[in-house]
C-alpha cells in the first residue's frame, strides 16, 4: 500500500512537470515551436529549426511539411504578442499545417487556441 502511494505521488510530481511554458528570450519576445522545420523567418533563410524566439509584432515564417511525393512550403503571417507561445502542427486540416496559440490550462494539459491557417502553401514536386 505504501509502495503504491509512493509510486502514485512520484507519478503525480512527474506529470505535474509536463506542462511548462518555455523561458522567453526577453520581455518583447514570443516563442514558437513547430513539428516541422522552420526554414525562413521574416524573409531571411535560417538553418532548419523546430523552435524560435520571435520579436513581438508582425512575423512571417516559412515552414516545410515534407511528404514522399511533394514538399508543402507553408507561409504564416501573424502578429505575435510578447510572452505568448505559438505552436505549429499538422492535424489533417485543409492545409497541411496550422498555427495555434499554446496556453497552459493547468499542470496536466495545455490548450491550442486561435487557429491560424497559412496564407499560402506552395507544393513542390520532389
Amino acid at each position: 500500500m505504501t509502495r503504491h502511494l509512493i509510486i502514485f505521488v512520484c507519478a503525480g510530481f512527474i506529470l505535474n512537470a509536463c506542462v511548462q511554458a518555455p523561458v522567453f528570450k526577453g520581455e518583447d519576445y514570443a516563442y514558437i515551436s513547430s513539428s516541422y522545420p522552420i526554414v525562413r523567418v521574416n524573409g531571411e533563410d535560417v538553418e532548419p529549426a523546430y523552435s524560435y524566439d520571435l520579436m513581438a509584432g508582425e512575423n512571417t515564417l516559412v515552414i516545410v511539411f515534407h511528404t514522399y511525393l511533394k514538399d508543402y512550403v507553408c507561409t504564416f503571417t501573424w502578429t505575435a504578442k510578447p510572452g505568448v507561445v505559438y505552436e505549429v502542427t499538422d492535424q489533417d486540416h485543409r492545409y497541411p499545417l496550422t498555427l495555434y496559440v499554446w496556453e497552459p490550462t493547468n499542470s496536466y494539459w495545455a490548450s491550442r487556441l486561435d487557429p491560424v491557417e497559412p496564407s499560402q502553401c506552395v507544393q513542390n514536386d520532389k
Binding site: 506542462v19 492535424q91 490550462t105 494539459w109 495545455a110 490548450s111 491550442r112
Partner: peptide, 12 residues
C-alpha cells in the same frame, strides 16, 4: 476540444 495532455500529444 483541442488540448495537449501532458504537453505530449494532441487531442483534438
Amino acid at each position: 476540444v483541442n488540448i495537449k495532455p501532458l504537453n505530449w500529444f494532441g487531442w483534438e
